[in-house]
Design a protein around this nucleic acid. Sequence first.
RNA 1: GUGGAUGUAGCUCAGUUGGUUAGAGCGCCGGAUUGUGGUUCCGGAGGUCGCCGGUUCAAGCCCGGUCUUCCACCCCA
Length: 479
Amino acid sequence: MANKPSIPKGTRDFSPQEMLRRKYIFNTIEKVFQKYGYLPLETPAMENLETLTGKYGEEGDRLIFKILNSGNAWDGVSDNVKNAIKAGDAVPSGRLAAELSEKALRYDLTVPFARYVVQHQNEIAFPFKRYQIQPVWRADRPQKGRYREFYQCDADVIGSRSLVNEVELVLLMLDVFDALGLAVEIRVNERKILHGITQYFGVEDRAMEFITILDKLDKVNFEGLPEEYRKAGFSEFVVQELVPFLKQVQQPTEEIVWGKPTALNKKFAEKGLAYGSVGDLNVVAIIDGVKRARPDLTESQVVHDITLARGLNYYTGAIFEVKALEGSLRSSICGGGRYDDLTGIFGLKNMSGVGISFGADRIYDVLLELNKFSSHVGGSSDLLFVIPLDEDGPIRNSVTNWCIGLSMKLRRLGFSVEVYPDPSKLAKQFTYAEKKGIPYVAIVGESEMKEGKVTLKRMGANEKGDLMTIEELINKLKG
RNA sequence: GUGGAUGUAGCUCAGUUGGUUAGAGCGCCGGAUUGUGGUUCCGGAGGUCGCCGGUUCAAGCCCGGUCUUCCACCCCA
């Protein structure tokens, strides 16, 4: 026998039950997107490789799935590279890949969106608000909550610098997780604040490294942070003063009010760091705006986390990250931010945008672990026709046809109905109904057909079933 | 990309220092019960022990490789 068939690492099949639950998540998110005025968009699974490279940082480039050129890809490789390989010389990183491949699977939905906006700029009315729910692919090493193929649910608005967009996106996130019944914490920060902090500590030349360590705070805590900086070779000033600085400028959400200078802002002002101050004011404006729209929020739902960094290189302003407050998954289930110049690299300047992305697969994992699907998800038929005759024959044939006719009548009234197709014992047919969660079975044999009636039995109830007319059956199903 | 675990029936897992024919529970199929499922009883099917190679008289067990899943790092949805 042949080897068992399989699927590539990090990909999954989804059973009917899983699909019903996934669709529930997608539908919930989509409905909220539409409520906020976002409209649907789809882009191809593959993009030109050059559209994607260089947009996600060095690490991101490595994780892009590249598609081998059609035909004999090797024939298209330049003589320079061929000769270098034959001679055993080193070929510059990415060079060979670029010559063997000119297409790649999309890595996220934001960059293809930016590409779309540039390409269709003359047809678009700005500010342009679109949502997009499609799979993306990353050549990452799979782990729990980390897949090589997964869905992102994005909402972005491009062509507006207003912080109204940030405020509304936070409100949107709150609505989605509220609808899903999931308690979350939304953390907000601003890239300009991080830049301001690097200026404050005089480490602009090692800004990336500095920020990467800072982002680890939630893992190593205040106690471990100085050691991380010492190991990386930062100055004693950073090692000694950063933690006290962070403790001083941390601010609970309830104290963040528009017009009231924050501790961070005072620090920046002392050193004349106007850029960082702008970032701080933006965060205050966003959180203040959210609080005004949702006075009912509890303290921990939206917070300013001064150490939140996020990896994607193109963010320049506000950044968001959402984590579930319950469950074992510690990684983020939603994230986003503002990018001032994502379309610039494609030739369209001065197009600031901001967006967020929900990780549907991770949300699924969390909801499953917490048992939050339960009654939301239906999907089973309302009624199964069950025919007792377990042998094929003319009588069975006419009973079956009569049931199909009844099914059509019921379907036109809006019910989902199926007829058990094979001649089987009643026990087997009931088991089928039970497993599929079908609430009613209609037993129809020769006698029922002659009377124009059915014997209706409710699954789960300990009863034999009642003989009734079709009108009575319809009323039962309606109730 | 680096380091570390894991894999035995459809599912969850036993399997002794290497030793005859690899087990259990649940599930599945059939019967007790030919028009009433879920309970009970009886019976049955189902395994190239992830895959390939090696050591050995002998491998589920030891060794090497490979794939999968998982964990840490990295990064992220």
